[in-house]
Amino acid sequence: MTEQGTSAIPELPIPIFRVSPQVERYMLYDVNIISWLRKHHNILGVLIGTIPQVPQQNVFLGLPLELLPEEARLLVADGIAYVVDDLSWHRKSIARGEHSERMQQDLRREGLQLAQDFERRKQDKMLEHVEGAKGKRKNRIKQEEEQGSIQAQETLFQGVSNPVGQSLPLAPTQTEPETQPWIIVPTTAESLLGRPAKGPASQMPLVRPASYALFEHLHRRSYFMIPGLRFGCQYSVYPGDPLRFHSHFLASGLDWDEDMDLLDLIGGGRLSTGVKKGWMIGGVDPTREVGDLDSEAIGAKNREAGSALRTFCIEWGGM
């Protein structure tokens, strides 16, 4: 929880939280899992949490991350993840309620550790500044620091004996000599409730088959997908991480015999070319044989290998 941003391999399979049985929405709350999935499995999802200090802006969003149903299904199908019903799991686990006290103590201890580390670093910096100029002062600060750590130890034991409901200061202030623990708000419930158990038969997220086929086809070919609503398609398709690449295609999945309006094709093609992309349509050809999905066969030349899905890319003709 404290080692944020690193992509250490999480314990597999990972839980994906479905909001409730009525709603087809899938969430991830653990930043380690999110960054690991992005790095190793081309799974992006959409960050939907606002930042508490700046709730109005929506350019930079944070946890939680909402997965597309297609992404959730792909992860479950590959055995990387399983679906947990968030609501019922919480209700069941919190009803037991045996861990809450211990967790609060753990959090307090961790917060105190953070606060102490912060104070120590601050003082070290101060020492560096003062060093050389006043030798005598340096000694005095060292003494103070020692005293400070003893005080901090005392607060630690106070925390254990006192109920944690009492109000805590938001951050250590300079006027108060003793270190106050920082408040930690955990983003996952795992420290409180433990890891949710995997059910006997993990449910499969529901998806539109035609869309999912195209999503899977492109995902297996190392493309990254994000929702394509802002370009009027199903997926914006990136050849690599969207932080490094512009998207190549605006893709929509169709059934093999699904009627399409030529005007939609023309509009899509025109829009895509205007933003230097290609308009992609794709669907599963039921008559096509599925070969082995051999990674070597899917070179630049033969990107269609190993799939019954067929894609077409449309660009403006320029005339």
Binding site: K276, C313, I314
Partner: peptide, 13 residues
């Protein structure tokens, strides 16, 4: 109107 259609995944110009 004229639009180019590619068979398969072809990156855009």
């Amino acid at each position: 109107v004229y639009y180019i259609v590619h068979d398969g995944i072809v990156k855009p110009r």
